[in-house]
Simulated assay, not measured.
Amino acid sequence: MSEWDFSGLSAMFVNCTLKKSPEVSNTEGLIDASAAIMLKHGVSVEVLRAVDHDIATGVYPDMTEHGWERDAWPDIYPQVLASDILVIAGPIWLGDNSSITKKVIERLYSLSGELNDKGQYLFYGRTAGCIITGNEDGIKHCAQNVLYSLQHIGYTIPPNADAGWIGEAGPGPSYLDPGSGGPENDFTNRNTTFMTWNLMHTAQMLKDAGGVPGHGNQRTAWDAGARFDYENPEYRS
């Protein structure tokens, strides 16, 4: 038995493919590789294919309050908040993240003004990473956008928190296609493994510590007048 037991942790992978189920998603192929490591060490894993759900466009928690007839997001985001680990996974199109990836990030951002019990932004105390797939260049470009967005709303990003696979530039085999070389690619496999373990380690550290310490980062305290040792430049000697 492994010495590493993360059975108290939960993870959610959001697959931002453009393909509705049951169409094969190459992104999900790489998700499976990361999820398998987590499951082996006791993490509870959920995978959600965002395009299968009627998620409205917008930057409010419930877009039915802003003119949309339907919005699946209010049923989805409690699952996100219940997860210690979030992995946004998606394909590259035109050198950038998919439209579904952008929509999911916008809906996460819709909650960024909410606060936790400490008065911090809601996503504090959770960790996140990303997976990118495609057959054109852009893994690092797409990852930096996703990881910046996630840390901006409060997620803790561990070292080496991105992984991906791209085939030969231009039309060609995708990750799960026979002969693509994707599942055998050592660079991809190494990065996926490092990302997965760093997510588990960081999530466990945050859980054991009770989240990020609640000092110097509490919106409620700042609004009440606390300045946490910040000195207004006008009064500095």
Score class of each variant (00 low, 15 high):
Ser7His: 12
Tyr175Ala: 04
Gln204Trp: 01
Arg126His: 12
Thr220Ile: 14
Asp75Gln: 15
Ala33Ser: 10
Leu86Gly: 01
Ser180Leu: 05
Asp186Arg: 08
Ala11Cys: 04
Asp32Thr: 11
Lys40Trp: 01
Arg70Gly: 02
Ser149Ile: 00
Met12Pro: 00
Ser149Met: 11
His215Gly: 00
Ala209Tyr: 03
Thr202Ser: 10
Met205Pro: 00
Asn135Leu: 02
Trp165Met: 06
Tyr155Phe: 15
Trp68Ala: 14
Leu94Arg: 09
Ser2Arg: 05
Ser99Met: 13
Glu65Trp: 03
His53Trp: 14
Tyr235Cys: 01
Ile100Gly: 00
Ser174Trp: 13
Leu30Thr: 11
Gly90Phe: 01
Glu46Ala: 13
Gly8Cys: 05
Leu206Gly: 09
Asn198Ile: 05
Ile85Lys: 10
Glu46Phe: 02
Gly58Thr: 12
Asn26Asp: 11
Thr101Asp: 12
Arg227Pro: 00
Asn145Gln: 10
Gly90Glu: 05
Gly129Pro: 06
Arg70Phe: 14
Pro78Lys: 07
Asp75Phe: 10
His41Arg: 10
Leu86Asp: 10
Val24Phe: 03
Ala224Tyr: 06
Phe123Arg: 05
Thr27His: 04
Leu86Met: 12
Pro159Arg: 06
Ile131Ser: 06
His53Gly: 02
Thr156Ser: 14
Pro91Tyr: 08
Pro171Phe: 12
Arg219Gly: 00
Asp229Lys: 08
Lys118Leu: 15
Tyr124Glu: 11
Asp71Thr: 10
Asn135Tyr: 04
